[in-house]
Amino acid sequence: MTEHSLTASHVVEYDYTRSLGPVLSHFVTGLRDRVVRGTRTKSGRVIVPPLEFDPDTYEDLGADALVDVGEAGVVTSWAWVHEPRPSHPLDQPFAWVLVQLDGADTPLLHALDAGGEDAVSTGMRVQVRWAQDRVGGIRDIACFEPEGAS
């Protein structure tokens, strides 16, 4: 007798909801209005995107601790994407970049439309390219582009 090990597919799919809370809601509504916001911690560091609590002391940091930062900054690290996938923010080859915006002490992850790999370097200055239709979400920043590009 042949032994069989039976298998069957098991697909699980549900609808869920998420609430952003008071601090990140300000962040995404800021993006809709073309403003990038961070939080100032008790020690004076500016964290972007903002946090609900101080990462050093874990005390609450409410909406009062929000500060606006610049929409341009410096690339602190990057990785080139030769073949973008359908879910990526850009159709053409681009760089994932960590950008430390002016006035911020931490970098933000986003995409950089640089034209080519040779045009990207750590330390280069970049600026936000805003999406045409902004709805309150991280993709209200379409991508970053080299400063002065448009």
């Binding site: 609430s19 952003l20 809370g21 008071p22 601090v23 990140l24 609900e52 609590f53």
Partner: peptide, 11 residues
């Protein structure tokens, strides 16, 4: 409690 995120709720 949709005025709170999940981290906000536990906090």
């Amino acid at each position: 409690r949709n005025e709170l995120s999940m981290p906000g709720l536990v906090r």
